Each structure stands twice: as C-alpha cells, then as structure tokens.
Simulated scan of single mutants.
Amino acid sequence: MMPVPDPHPDVFDVQWPLRVADVDREGRLKFDAATRHIQDIGTDQLREMGFEETHPLWIVRRTMIDMIEPVVFKDMLRLRRWCSGTSNRWCEMRVRVEGRRSGLLESEAFWININRETQGPARISDDFIEGLRRTTGETRLRWKAYLTPGSRDDAASVHRFPVRVSDIDIFDHMNNAVYWSVVEDYLASRPELMKAPLRVAIEHDLPVALGDDLEIIRHEYPAGSTDKFGEELTDRAVTTLTYVVGDETKAVAAIFPL
C-alpha cells in the first residue's frame, strides 16, 4: 500500500481510545471494529474539509486491511487518513491505524460518491477533488475486481448468517462493518492466522437487506493451488468467504498471511 506522506498538511490525523466493544476476548482490536473506525474517520475528515453537506453519502466497494501487528486493549489509537487515488466519481482512501504503545493496521478502501436523489454514483466537485489530489498523483482511478465468488459445489462449508435490524444502516442495507464480523467468526476457528501479519480484503457487489436469507460459502485453497489469486500468493494458503442470497453474490472476502 502507498506509504503515509508524513509530515503532510493534508493527512487527516486523529486519536481516540481503544474501548471494550472494539476488542476480542484476547484484547485484540477486531477487524469489524477497525472498519467502524475507518468509516468514522472518513466522516470526520469530510466534516473537517467542509464537504459534509455537499457530499454526505458514500458507499464502499472494496476494503483491504493488513493487520501487521495487533493493537491491544487500553491503548490509544492514532488514525491517519489520506487519498491514494481519484477519479470523477470515486476515490481510494488510505487509513493507517496505530497503537501508541504498539500495533499497526494498514487499510485502503475504494469509496463511491452517491447522489442523494438517484442513489447512483455522482460527480465529485472540483474543489473537493483538488483537495484529495494533494496527497496522490493517481487521477485516473479505475475499478477492477480482484476476487471471484466461490461455488456451493466444492465448498468447505455453507452456513447461514442472520441479518439483524441493528445491522442495517442509513442506506437500508447491511453496514460494511457487519461483513467483517463474518471474518471474525472465521478467525475464531483459526487462531494460528493471527500469529503472523494477515491481509483481509472484502469486495461488495450488491447490498444485503433486512429479511435476506444470507449464507456464507467458505473455500480453503492450500499453498500451491492459489495461483489464480496472483503469482505472489502461490506459496501460501488462501481462504475465501462468499456472501450469497440465493444464487446472487453479495460480496466476497479473501484472507491470507502476508
């Protein structure tokens, strides 16, 4: 991922404490909690830049988080956010999450600006883009999917994930952070994965709504069979989680050691 351009006046820099609801039984900052913080700092930066009223609605298409070293309970979080790529209607935003004592997470998310009336992609204003481009030279950002959904036919497991009222956000869809709680469920059964740096990426295709019969299809690809994920991953195992409602893919997650 793009390194933090520090010091830089256009890197948004905040701190807040790591709280009980953010951590697992071992005191580690959870992926779903980290995702909430990544969303929250985005809202705070939007307000700080003065575009909260003109660009209030955004949806995330992909979030990638590298857990380099876990941040643990009672630490103070430092979050820095900046733009790593832009186009007319979307941007990629980097967030670096650090503990004051120890711990590091790196993240990058692909955000789409949404029109309030049409609920479709909307052009970002010129003055907003000008501010975003102060930290990046990438001005022709394009969307490219990295992940392919898995099939039920050769799945390691298929299980239901109940969608609750509390999971639904302002768009009337399941909030982005809830997808990461599925990742946490999986990691609870694979504690050895947390002993080394870990990358998790989730790509969203379609929203999940209240009342949907959501299922998670899991595939395990051992080292040596993972060339379809890229040559650099052929030497390590990859797990994918495909979020489906009926035959419709809603999202795909990939989990692998760095």
Score class of each variant (00 low, 15 high):
M49P: 10
A109W: 07
A33T: 03
V95G: 06
L105M: 15
V60K: 08
I129G: 12
C83E: 03
R62Q: 14
L29F: 13
K30P: 01
R142Q: 15
R116Y: 00
Q45A: 00
R47D: 12
L77S: 07
E69Q: 15
D44T: 02
H55M: 00
D40K: 12
D127Q: 12
P149E: 06
T136G: 01
G42W: 05
M67V: 12
E138C: 01
M76E: 13
G137S: 04
L29S: 01
I59D: 02
A122C: 05
R80Q: 15
E130W: 10
L147P: 09
R96W: 00
E52W: 13
I129Y: 11
K30A: 04
F73G: 01
R28S: 05
L132N: 06
V23P: 08
M64S: 15
Q45V: 02
C83K: 03
L141S: 11
M93G: 03
F51R: 10
G150T: 09
W143P: 05
G103A: 09
V23N: 08
L79F: 14
P121L: 06
A145G: 14
G85V: 04
E48F: 15
R61Q: 14
R133Y: 04
E117G: 00
T63V: 14
W58C: 01
V97K: 00
P121E: 04
K144L: 06
E106I: 01
N88Y: 10
G120D: 11
E48H: 15
K74S: 11
E69T: 14
G27L: 01
E52P: 06
Q45R: 09
E138F: 00
R81Q: 14
I124V: 06
E53N: 13
L105N: 07
Q119D: 07
Q45H: 12
Q119G: 03
E48R: 12
R140H: 14
T54W: 07
S125K: 07
I114W: 00
A145E: 09
F128K: 06
L79M: 15
I68G: 08
H37E: 08
I59G: 07
E48D: 15
P70W: 11
I41E: 08
R140I: 02
D24V: 05
V72W: 09
G99E: 04
D126P: 02
I114L: 01
L141E: 09
I41D: 02
M93K: 09
G50T: 10
I59K: 06
F73D: 00
V23H: 06
D127H: 14
I129A: 15
A145V: 02
S151C: 07
E48T: 10
R94M: 13
L104K: 08
R152L: 09
Q45D: 10
M49K: 10
V95Q: 09
D66N: 12
I59M: 09
F128M: 14
E108W: 01
A145Q: 08
E138L: 03
R89V: 11
T136E: 02
R47Y: 05
C83A: 10
Q45M: 09
P121A: 11
F73N: 01
